[in-house]
């Protein structure tokens, strides 16, 4: 048994290293396929980054009357945090609100001058609430608008921004859906291309398979080396793909970062092992599966 496994592995390696034309063709196609698949992984990462950035800019703010103490605001905050929909609730004191306002409009005297004219801090203490899902802002705003907080809350800014939040929600789910659909379609095309290339490689070996059958080789002794060759093509293509991706990430990182804020190279390094696993699984899986399916017809007696 062990001797047969050893011979199948050796024979697979010989096919991979000696049959250069078919191995080369399969390697090129498999590398392109894996490049497409890992680019889709990159696209998913990029779209998630952009969607999170869009969603991060959205919140609901509840402004508290001057008469409400900090303890009471913290009480409201802890009630909010107990809600499943709430991801975080940041407390901004009146002083902090003023500091941020001044920082934001530094150098714009026409905006800051009225503040000095008033002579006191006109800003409210408030809670900036972020939801887990943009669709949940509605429920959070309704919770804050309830009877329990009517005497403490001066205003909630959600109702002014509701259309913007809804539109953002539509855009982000559109991006996610679009990326998913494109990924699915391209993945199917990639799998079909890889499968057909391996099938052609095995078609070229049909005479060899016939000879092996005629000299009394068992189906596994014939099939095995082709599966090993498929696995080696997949594994080699995985490493080539990662090399290309890292090279492209390294040289293309700067322009993309200045355009979108997304650091491709850092993303690739951060997800290196996930990508390696994805490529190896897709490459070896496709190589072995395609070879197994394609060789079946030539093994029929």
């Amino acid at each position: 048994m062990m001797i047969s496994v050893k011979r199948i592995l050796r024979s697979g390696w010989e096919k991979f290293s000696r049959d250069r034309s078919s191995t080369g063709a399969a390697l090129v196609v498999m590398t392109v396929v894996l490049f497409v698949v890992s680019s889709l992984f990159l696209l998913q990462g990029m779209s998630t980054f952009l969607v999170e950035r869009l969603e991060g800019g959205v919140d609901v703010s509840a402004y508290f009357k001057d008469t409400v103490s900090e303890e009471e605001i913290f009480e409201v905050r802890s009630q909010l945090l107990s809600l499943q929909e709430v991801k975080e609730a940041e407390y901004i004191s009146r002083e902090e609100a003023l500091r941020r306002f001044v920082d934001a409009y530094r150098g714009q005297e026409e905006i800051l001058a009225p503040l000095e004219a008033i002579g006191r801090n006109p800003l409210y203490a408030h809670l900036n609430v972020k939801a887990r899902d943009p669709k949940q802002y509605d429920q959070i705003a309704e919770f804050l608008a309830g009877e329990a907080f009517a005497s403490a809350i001066a205003s909630i800014d959600f109702y002014d921004r509701a259309p913007l939040i809804e539109r953002l929600s539509l855009i982000t789910s559109g991006i996610r859906g679009g990326v998913l659909a494109v990924s699915a379609i391209l993945s199917i095309i990639a799998v079909l291309v890889a499968f057909n290339t391996i099938r052609l490689t095995i078609y070229n070996s049909k005479e060899e398979i016939e000879i092996m059958r005629l000299v009394g080789a068992s189906s596994w002794f014939i099939r095995g080396p082709f599966l090993v060759q498929g696995a080696l093509v997949g594994a080699t293509a995985s490493f080539l793909t990662l090399l290309f991706l890292l090279a492209i990430g390294f040289f293309g990182s700067k322009p993309l970062y200045s355009f979108s804020g997304f650091d491709v190279f850092a993303f690739l390094l951060g997800h290196f092992f996930s990508l390696l696993l994805l490529c190896l699984a897709a490459g070896i899986g496709l190589g072995v599966l395609s070879a197994a399916i394609a060789i079946r017809r030539y093994l029929r007696v």
């Binding site: 010989e14 096919k15 000696r18 049959d19 005479e207 060899e208 016939e210 000879i211 092996m212 059958r213 005629l214 000299v215 009394g216 080789a217 068992s218 189906s219 007696v301």
Partner: peptide, 25 residues
Amino acid sequence: RPSDLPQLRRNIGMVFQDYKLLNSK
């Protein structure tokens, strides 16, 4: 049975006009 055919073929040595050698070996 198809699984017994390799055994049968191991008892018969075949020589063909077109040699049928494995070119990669």
